[in-house]
């Protein structure tokens, strides 16, 4: 075994020269997930553009990001180099988990990307449009089963908002939670449920292949190159995007906040960031400063009210 350790040691030492960190980005999720990929894309971009010499990513998974958030708030107070990636899912998770730490305790910098939530049915389904779905919901809300990600997440919230907007009772939403969009995809493809609701990218290849029919996307504007109406166009007054953001540590000075914001803005406008978004199929929904703060407050309020109506938060 010693030989292998030696070999690994040598190859490791050759392959990866080490740096001292400048920014440390916390991804409050396991490696491989959306937040982790966002953090690692930021890492590549910040380094490639020379904005920061050395960036390290740490993963603190668990409970919709609230464990990472709590650790970030407790340990990074006033640290100018500490950043955390987060997103809309965190808003719901903070409420349903009754998290002791909230997004008020970090310093939001900017919204970076956003993804539309797609509402799909199997190709063989009788539902042809959002109108059909609305009619089915009004007729018998419980008979429409929705497959999506974990309870209280963006998918569940959107299902609740749609049900409420078409005039049905949101407490009756028959939402079947799966541990990831992927497992929900299998349930929709297998015809186990009526509707699938999850991030557009989860369903994209099946929609292209004609296995799933895309009824609508949840964003306020249409998704480029995707032939589907928005919910608003279909007469359902709901606009949600599953956004991801970057935030800085609590207790930093205004100058420090301005410096970080400038670095992030530079990164977002860089060629490498744009190329990375393109290759991953993410949509740039950059929004910074007070506009982002206002949107955040609005999202938190809307989420709290629908989670109360569904009965997940009391």
């Amino acid at each position: 075994m010693n030989k292998f350790i030696l070999a690994a040691l040598v190859s490791g030492a050759l392959a990866l020269p080490s740096f001292a960190a400048d920014y440390t980005i916390m991804a409050p999720a396991a490696p491989g997930g959306g937040w982790d990929q966002t953090a690692r894309t930021m890492q590549e971009s910040l380094q490639a553009e020379g904005i920061s010499g050395n960036v390290q990513v740490t993963n603190v998974p668990g409970a919709g990001g609230t464990i990472g958030l709590a650790q970030f708030v407790n340990q990074s107070n006033g640290d100018r180099n500490a950043l955390i990636v987060g997103g809309y899912v965190m808003v719901g998770a903070i409420l349903t988990n009754a998290s002791p730490v909230t997004l008020d305790q970090v310093t939001p910098i900017a919204r970076l990307t956003g993804e539309a939530i797609a509402i799909v049915v199997p190709a063989s389904s009788a539902l042809q449009s959002v109108d059909d779905l609305a009619a089915a919901l009004k007729e018998n809300t419980g008979a429409v089963s929705w497959a999506g990600g974990s309870a209280g997440g963006a998918d569940h919230i959107t299902a609740g908002l749609i049900t409420k907007a078409v005039g049905a009772d949101p407490t009756q939403v028959n939402y079947i939670a799966y541990s990831g969009g992927g497992e929900a995809l299998a349930a929709v493809l297998g015809g186990q449920v009526t509707v699938g609701i999850s991030g557009y990218s989860e369903f994209a290849s099946q929609i292209e292949a004609g296995e799933l029919r895309l009824l609508a996307v949840s964003t306020a504007e249409r998704v480029p190159n995707v032939d589907a109406p928005t919910l608003k166009e279909s007469g359902v007054d709901v606009a949600v995007q599953n956004w991801r953001m970057v935030a800085a540590a609590p207790g930093i000075t205004d100058e420090q906040k301005a410096a970080i914001s400038a670095d992030i803005e530079k990164m977002v406008n860089s060629a490498s960031w744009k190329a990375a978004l393109e290759s991953r199929g993410w949509v740039n929904t950059y929004l910074a400063g007070d506009a982002f703060k206002a949107q955040l407050t609005e999202d938190i309020a809307a989420t709290e009210s629908i989670l109360r109506e569904i009965g997940l938060v009391q």
Partner: peptide, 28 residues
């Protein structure tokens, strides 16, 4: 065939495949 990672290992592999330019799914 579905782009569906069913285990933790598979989820990590999916990210890896995307690096190799493979886009798992029915059209793969």
């Amino acid at each position: 065939t579905l782009g569906l990672p069913t285990t933790a290992t598979a989820a990590i592999m999916l990210a890896g495949f995307q690096q190799f330019g493979l886009q798992p799914g029915p059209l793969l």
